[in-house]
Amino acid sequence: MGTRHRQAVITKEGDLKIQQYGQWDGYPDGQGKDILNYLRNGDLDRYQENLNKIPLINDEQIDEVNKDSNWTKNYPYLSRDCGSNIHQMIEYGVVKFVQHTDLEECQKWCEGFYTIDFQKGVFITEYYDNTVEFDLKKLPTEEEYLKAFVTEDEDA
């Protein structure tokens, strides 16, 4: 479903490395759950090592991507279709560079915001008016995570 979201990743040093727009499944039961599962099962040491090597896209690289008629295949991590798959791509060292989404613009039309903050050691999910934060060392189960987004009206 076309539920827009933004994913962000902050390094242990406090640098915003990833700020990416996604077009699909931006609700907690979609991208949120996928990110949670990555955080629970991925190699986060390798992820952070590779994350620190990723530069922000430069003008020459933008030209390279724009000239590539098959850019979504060759640079899938830049696509709005990438979603939470970017985290595995980072872990595997596939991501050559990233392009940041304009946060102010994204706040106007995104429903979900997902932040992995290694500096604070938390995974934050903002979905409409609900914000939840989980310690990266004590991540919830999928059920516990999703329960954080159930309103009293839905629970009844």
Rank of each mutant, 00 (worst) to 15 (best):
K17N: 00
Q19S: 07
Q19N: 12
Q19L: 11
Q19H: 07
Q20I: 02
Q20E: 08
Q23L: 10
D25R: 02
D25K: 02
D25A: 01
G30A: 01
G32R: 00
K33M: 11
D34I: 13
D34R: 15
I35Q: 00
L36F: 10
N37E: 13
Y38D: 03
Y38I: 08
G42R: 07
L44P: 03
D45A: 12
R46K: 15
Y47N: 04
Y47T: 04
Q48G: 05
Q48K: 11
Q48W: 11
E49L: 15
E49H: 14
L51D: 02
I54T: 09
I54Q: 05
I54A: 08
P55Q: 09
L56Q: 12
D59P: 10
E60W: 02
Q61R: 10
Q61K: 10
D63S: 07
E64A: 10
V65H: 06
V65G: 06
V65Q: 07
K67G: 10
K67T: 11
K67D: 15
K67S: 15
D68F: 07
S69Q: 14
N70A: 09
T72M: 12
P76Y: 04
P76R: 02
Y77V: 03
R80F: 14
D81M: 08
C82E: 06
C82V: 05
C82F: 04
G83E: 01
S84I: 03
Q88H: 14
M89T: 08
M89P: 08
E91M: 06
Y92M: 13
G93A: 07
V94F: 13
V95T: 00
K96G: 10
F97R: 00
V98K: 02
V98A: 05
Q99I: 03
Q99V: 04
T101S: 13
T101N: 09
D102S: 03
D102Q: 03
D102L: 01
L103D: 13
C106I: 13
Q107A: 09
K108P: 02
W109A: 05
W109M: 09
C110H: 05
C110I: 06
I116H: 06
F118T: 01
F118G: 02
Q119D: 10
Q119W: 05
G121I: 00
G121V: 00
V122D: 01
F123G: 01
F123W: 01
I124R: 14
E126W: 08
E126M: 13
Y127P: 00
Y127W: 09
Y127I: 06
Y128L: 15
D129F: 14
N130P: 08
T131I: 08
E133L: 08
E133H: 07
F134T: 03
